[in-house]
């Protein structure tokens, strides 16, 4: 392995350590960083860090986490899952925006019902975010202003900035996109579309992680935490509804409108049905994360 590649993997390893929960980093970060310095991880090593971070978040036992800290982690987990699901929702909207899908829904009630259920879930989720999340955001903004906490202010700016950057990249990708006829040329896919998709995932990850980091720094009253938890439960219900409705829509589309189902609509020429199935899978993963987070919060006395 060349030394530059070793340095790159060492850097990637140190970044992945940042995905571990705060109590874990406080305990193990120095020695894990030293190990990574001594033995820069390969791809398997990086995968083990990623799996280890997920495990550390999901493992219930850790005595190092106070009930209130666990409650905050659970709430931010549910909110993060919602943000990730929003990306799936945007993909669904994009995949079904053509008039042909509206016409199909007019002809086939099952499609219309599934579509309406997705919208209902989105409205329920937005309402939950407004009732449970916005008060927390307000408290964080106030604390950043009163205490002049630059790090908190930076964390608060992180998600909007990442969205702005992604919006700029989207504008650039659209401007560079050649005229399409069934699929993009490989050069555009590799040079612009793949980086754009990666940037979108990075933006979603930033939007999911930033609220968690903010919540860990903000002084929140038990009442606000309780309201945020209830909002998180409502979000989880909305996510369950949306996932079920996405599945129903995909199945109904396949049964009732096979031409639309099979039509190549994805960025790499994949069929609409395949794209929607991938969306259902991603939504199910987000919902599973939210359910796990909700279960963890239920074990806290404050819940």
């Amino acid at each position: 392995m060349s030394s530059s590649r070793g340095r790159l993997r060492g850097l990637a390893g140190r970044l992945l350590i940042e995905l571990y929960p705060e109590h874990w980093r406080a305990r193990y970060r120095a020695e894990m960083s030293a190990l990574i310095e001594d033995d820069p991880p390969g791809l398997r090593g990086l995968a083990s860090l990623l799996g280890g971070a997920a495990d550390a978040h999901l493992r219930p036992g850790s005595a190092a986490v106070s009930p209130q800290a666990r409650m905050r982690l659970s709430i931010s987990g549910m909110f993060a899952a919602w943000i990730a699901l929003s990306v799936v929702g945007a993909g669904f909207q994009k995949a079904t925006e053509e008039a042909a899908f509206s016409s199909a829904a007019d002809r086939h009630p099952a499609l219309a019902v599934a579509h309406d259920a997705i919208l209902a879930g989105a409205v329920l989720g937005a309402a939950a975010i407004a009732l449970g999340g916005l008060p927390l955001l307000w408290q964080a903004l106030r604390q950043a202003r009163v205490t002049r906490d630059a790090r908190l202010a930076g964390l608060l700016a992180l998600a909007p900035l990442s969205i702005l950057v992604f919006a700029g990249l989207t504008w650039l990708a659209v401007a560079l996109a050649p005229a399409r006829g069934g699929g993009f040329p490989l050069g555009f896919v590799l040079g612009a579309l793949a980086p754009w998709i990666l940037a979108g995932l990075a933006c979603a990850a930033t939007c999911a992680i930033a609220p968690r980091l903010v919540l860990a720094r903000v002084a929140v009253s038990p009442g606000s935490l309780r309201r945020a938890f209830l909002a998180g439960v409502a979000l989880t219900l909305a996510m369950t509804l949306i996932t079920a409705a996405l599945l129903a829509y995909d199945v109904a589309l396949g049964l009732q409108s096979p031409d639309l189902f099979a039509r190549a609509g994805g960025p790499i020429g994949a069929g609409t049905g395949t794209m929607l199935a991938a969306g259902v899978l991603a939504a199910a993963l987000c919902t599973a994360l939210a359910l796990l987070s909700a279960a963890r919060a239920r074990r806290c006395p404050a819940a």
Binding site: A30, G45, G51
Partner: peptide
């Protein structure tokens, strides 16, 4: 070859169960 995530996942569990004990750190290594 244990990856760092696997190694520390095992170390944390073993430490929680009292099967191993962390000693005083030697610089950044413990």
């Amino acid at each position: 070859h244990l990856g760092p995530g696997t190694l520390y996942g095992a170390l944390s569990r073993l430490e929680e169960q009292g099967l191993i004990r962390a000693l005083a750190a030697e610089g950044r290594r413990r």
